[in-house]
């Protein structure tokens, strides 16, 4: 499939097979000959890397220094107004900040595990 990385992939929303947001395409990983996209990189550390400078370091710092999450391109089922993965979100490693906030703040509030109404 031919895609313009800058136009069709970068900054696009990644969603899982149920449409739940997984992350943005904050950066991509290319094959050695730079002809194929091998993986999508998502997370503030990937975004911070693209920004560079002080601002980039600040954005990266919000993850507590965690590496960006790498999603092999083989998991991509379809690219339209979003990048659709063929798997459920739960099968991917959860983002560091999300996991930390779930464990230390949101998950501790009664009702955090309850679906709406």
């Amino acid at each position: 499939m031919r895609l313009l990385i800058g136009f069709d992939l970068l900054d696009r929303q990644i969603v899982d097979r149920d449409g739940v947001p997984v992350g943005k395409v904050d950066d991509v990983e290319l094959s050695d000959d730079a002809r194929h996209v091998t993986a999508l990189l998502t997370g503030q550390s990937a975004l911070g890397g693209r920004f560079g400078g002080v601002l980039g370091r600040w954005i990266t710092a919000t993850t507590g220094g965690a590496e960006p999450r790498r999603i092999p391109y083989g998991l991509v089922a379809l690219v339209d107004s979003a990048v659709h993965l063929s798997i459920k979100r739960a099968l991917l490693t959860p983002p560091a900040l999300e996991a930390w906030l779930d464990q230390h703040l949101i998950g501790r509030i009664p009702g955090a595990d309850r679906a709406e109404g």
Binding site: I14, V20, T42, P95, E98, I106, A112
Partner: peptide, 16 residues
């Protein structure tokens, strides 16, 4: 940032 969001998810699933 592309985080999961919304009231249709359980709060645990959208902690950020």
């Amino acid at each position: 940032f592309g985080w999961s969001w919304g009231k249709y998810l359980r709060p645990k699933q959208a902690a950020r």
